Simulated scan of single mutants.
Amino acid sequence: MYFLTKELYFPPVEEASYEGILAVGGDLSIERLLLAYNNGIFPWFDVDEPILWWSPSDRMVVNPKDYKVSKSLRNIINRNIFEVTINKDFESVIKNCQEIERKDQDGTWISNDIIESYTKLHQLGKAKSFEVWQNSELVGGLYGVDLGHVFCGESMFSKVPNASKVAFVKLIEYLKQNNYKLLDCQVHNDHLEKLGAFEISRNAFMMILKS
C-alpha cells in the first residue's frame, strides 16, 4: 500500500492490495481526482478515515450498447410519472446522496470535502448529475465523473420507489446516444447486479479506459 505525499502521483494499479486498496492519503484536489479517475482509481473512505484510493481486481460495469431495460422498468418509464433532467441541480443530488438512509449502512462516505471537490468537478464539466422529479419535487438521482468515453458512477438516491432506477436507465440511454464505451459502477453490490451491471477484470477495464 502506497502512502501519498503532496506529489501528484499514484502507483500502478497492479500494486493494489487484495481488497483493492492502492494508496492512502493525499488530497481531494481537482488535479488528483482527475489523475485518479483517468487511471482507473477512485476514492472511497469513511468520514473518520484517511483518504483511501481503490482499484479493485474486479470492476462492476455496464456496456451501454448491450444494455437491455427490463419490461417492468420500461413500463414504469412509459407511464411518465417522472421527469428526468441532466445537470439541473447537481448540488442537491450529491447532498441527497449524502443524507439518504441506506439499509445495512451506518453513516456515509460522502463527506463535506467530497461534496466540495465533486461540485468543483461539476463546475468544470467533469461531473454530471441526473435528476428525477415527481410533481416538481426532486425524488431521485445520481451523479458521477465524466471522462468523455467512460462515465464513473459515484452514488444514487431514491425517495420514492423506482426513482433511482429511472435515473440509472436514463443515464445509460444518454451514454449510448453519445457513444460512451462503458459505465463504471466500481464495486459489486446486489442492487447494481439486479439493474444489469456485471464484473470484468481490472485489466479488461483498463484496456477500455485507456483505449
Results as ranks from 00 to 15, higher is better:
178 N>D: 08
78 N>T: 14
151 F>T: 06
162 N>H: 13
142 L>R: 00
196 G>F: 05
84 V>R: 05
148 G>A: 08
15 E>A: 11
110 I>E: 05
182 L>S: 02
194 K>M: 13
146 D>M: 03
31 E>C: 06
166 V>C: 08
80 N>R: 15
91 E>W: 04
163 A>H: 07
191 H>N: 07
162 N>R: 09
177 Q>E: 14
203 N>Y: 03
34 L>Q: 08
19 E>C: 13
20 G>Q: 02
133 W>L: 12
181 K>H: 01
54 W>D: 05
71 K>T: 15
196 G>V: 14
200 I>R: 00
150 V>Y: 00
157 F>D: 01
62 V>R: 00
108 T>A: 11
112 N>Q: 13
21 I>L: 11
6 K>L: 12
196 G>T: 10
79 R>Q: 15
186 Q>G: 02
10 F>N: 00
201 S>K: 07
104 D>N: 15
96 N>F: 12
68 K>N: 11
153 G>R: 00
57 S>D: 05
196 G>I: 14
193 E>Q: 06
74 R>P: 08
5 T>D: 10
139 V>F: 06
72 S>Q: 12
76 I>C: 10
105 Q>R: 14
126 K>V: 09
87 N>C: 10
201 S>R: 03
115 I>E: 06
65 K>Y: 03
22 L>A: 02
6 K>E: 15
104 D>I: 15
178 N>G: 07
192 L>W: 02
196 G>L: 06
159 K>H: 14
108 T>C: 12
201 S>Y: 04
101 E>W: 07
58 D>Y: 01
179 N>R: 12
34 L>D: 04
118 Y>I: 09
173 E>N: 13
121 L>F: 08
65 K>E: 10
16 A>Q: 01
66 D>N: 09
17 S>R: 11
104 D>Q: 13
76 I>V: 15
192 L>H: 04
12 P>M: 02
138 L>Q: 00
198 F>T: 09
65 K>L: 12
178 N>Q: 06
56 P>S: 07
53 W>L: 05
145 V>T: 03
64 P>D: 00
186 Q>N: 01
42 F>D: 02
157 F>A: 06
172 I>H: 01
47 V>S: 10
71 K>R: 15
157 F>G: 05
128 K>L: 14
168 F>M: 14
192 L>S: 08
12 P>D: 10
77 I>G: 08
162 N>V: 13
130 F>I: 15
119 T>H: 07
100 I>T: 15
135 N>A: 14
29 S>E: 07
211 S>N: 10
67 Y>P: 03
151 F>K: 03
67 Y>W: 13
47 V>W: 06
35 L>T: 07
75 N>Q: 15
113 D>M: 05
122 H>P: 01
188 H>A: 09
195 L>H: 03
48 D>H: 13
200 I>C: 02
7 E>L: 12
29 S>R: 07
158 S>R: 08
53 W>C: 05
124 L>R: 04
207 M>D: 08
39 N>G: 09
74 R>L: 15
38 N>I: 05
201 S>E: 03
36 A>M: 04
14 E>A: 09
173 E>H: 07
120 K>I: 13
132 V>L: 09
88 K>H: 09
153 G>F: 02
113 D>I: 13
155 S>R: 04
149 H>T: 12
197 A>V: 06
69 V>F: 05
115 I>D: 08
